[in-house]
Design a protein around this nucleic acid. Sequence first.
DNA 1: CTGTTAGCGCTTTCAG
DNA 2: CTGAAAGCGCTAACAG
Lengths: 349, 349
Amino acid sequence: MAQADTQREPPFRGRATIRDIADLAGVSIATVSRVLNDRPDVAPETRENVLQVVREQGFSTNRGARGLSSGRTGMIGLTLPLVADAYFGPMLSGASEALYERDMRIVLAPTFHDHDREMSLLDRLMRGTTDGAILMLPEESADELRMLQRQGFPFVVVDPREAPPEGIACVAAMHASGAKQATEHLLELGHRRIGAIAGAQGWYATEERLLGFRAALAGAGILLDPELIVYSDWRIPQGTQAAEQLLSLPDPPTAIFGFNDNVAIGALHAAHARGLSVPDDLSVVGFDDTEPAKIVTPQLTSVRQPLAEMGRMGVSLLVRLIEGQRVDALRVELATKLVVRDSTAPPRA
Amino acid sequence: MAQADTQREPPFRGRATIRDIADLAGVSIATVSRVLNDRPDVAPETRENVLQVVREQGFSTNRGARGLSSGRTGMIGLTLPLVADAYFGPMLSGASEALYERDMRIVLAPTFHDHDREMSLLDRLMRGTTDGAILMLPEESADELRMLQRQGFPFVVVDPREAPPEGIACVAAMHASGAKQATEHLLELGHRRIGAIAGAQGWYATEERLLGFRAALAGAGILLDPELIVYSDWRIPQGTQAAEQLLSLPDPPTAIFGFNDNVAIGALHAAHARGLSVPDDLSVVGFDDTEPAKIVTPQLTSVRQPLAEMGRMGVSLLVRLIEGQRVDALRVELATKLVVRDSTAPPRA
DNA sequence: CTGTTAGCGCTTTCAG
DNA sequence: CTGAAAGCGCTAACAG
């Protein structure tokens, strides 16, 4: 009772609702809604008036409520294996920038490489909280993805783990051409025996990069010695180990091509441990061009993947999907580019 | 008309709603809601029955709708300057893990160091979409934070930029003690002239670390030469520059304490450029112990900040705030710890 | 223990 | 061009 007039003007009992704005502006909530959604059928004067009040009150619409009534929440889900990662970070960053520009929000769902978790997350993302999703390096098989698609939930895969399934929106980097460039760079420097620390077997990126590697070698008329390819799991220690193996060969390579920066850095470590100087005794090139490539000594020559751009592109595709626009290019491949730094040089002697 | 029975069994016209579940289970929606929210007042048998149907349908509740009616969305907002960053990444990761465990989702809002953006983001986060927020290294002044608080929106600051304001939930690391440890380590090694590359002036972390640095020096009976402290902006190039300055002194330091890993790495670069060997000619220690510290050569001795743990702790505080529980310790300081690696050694001669 | 009944804040026909 | 009214899916009293 003596609770006083909390019901009065501006500082509402919580946050202003569309109804408060309507009252203040002396119009109906329908009109406010129209203004808020940029509908054309509002008198300019009315619109200005409403916007005025909206600004005064610092009002912005409750997405949950909007979602309920319109089916569109303005939020999109994003799953990715890891958040604290030099590889996924930039992708996430690019996606979040693009989303921000569209005034959309992102519901983050790290899977920590757990397939079940990813599935259940996805499942939950779909339940009205989110208009669509971006799946980065998803754990799902092509079949699972297709099933998801059949449920009518819009999503796009960024950086597919397996070969991108037909009919599913997907953005990837040009792995093969990047690998080819890297290998050719080594070849031009005069290297003839080039070892490769490939990624995990069966991964799309691994297979494609292998293709590019082989193509470059073939182009130089070099017959690939199978001993010179060793698979890894993309991580530094495995890279070190793989490099050890390569360098222990009776006829060791003079250059090593790591299929990502991690394994290349691992190779750097291995060289260091053997007292080999990079690039004088051994050239090393990486792939991805993540932050660490610029930090290690010597700075790593690496193939740049446009990670942030991949994130942005994923958003762009997804938004079109959500809006029901025709998407002609369901599959987008972004160019990669070799960045030469200090870890490559002509072979000794 | 011939649209047929989309209204029938399982595969609903979209996704099952609570009403569908109720029908299928032969109970009211209120009962389903009770089961879903783990209310005690449901007969075990009924509960099991409902859960059965829920599982069958792969149902999960629409958070938007829940938010509308209960005022709780199960989502929390998180602002941070950068997502793709060795420092913020782990914090974010820790927070997202903790949130996941509580079956809550995180709405990500990177500010890219833009104050206005952060404010508007925050403002939007508050509008019913989110139950509370975690602000990592917020741009807001103490006053702004207090204003926010007055609006009744629960939030906690993780890693405050300024000295943490009274009465605001806040988690930080023990900067001073970490800095003291690092300096003492150098002192024990025999260094007497120790340069510091401080962070940005006025930052809480800078001031506190400076305190620890001074305390350690004082403890060893060393009078601090003001020339030996140079401020930076936490980034690598600035670190390099600051180190140049320090090393150009008539009587240069034999060790440099970088107030974060970036500037310490910058110092490594500067040493390298001068042909100084680390740690033989110059010892370097960093702060934060981010990923790059382990990657550079030589590996960096650094003070570990429990970044992921800070994120988790932030969530834990926030959840208590949201649930209206009493929070006795509004201010949490997490311990830091020196990790000795290869960049520190006794001074030459 | 369970069902009924109001809304939560917003969008969207459908009438003026 | 604008308002009235009907929900979106769910929770929360309030009765039984």
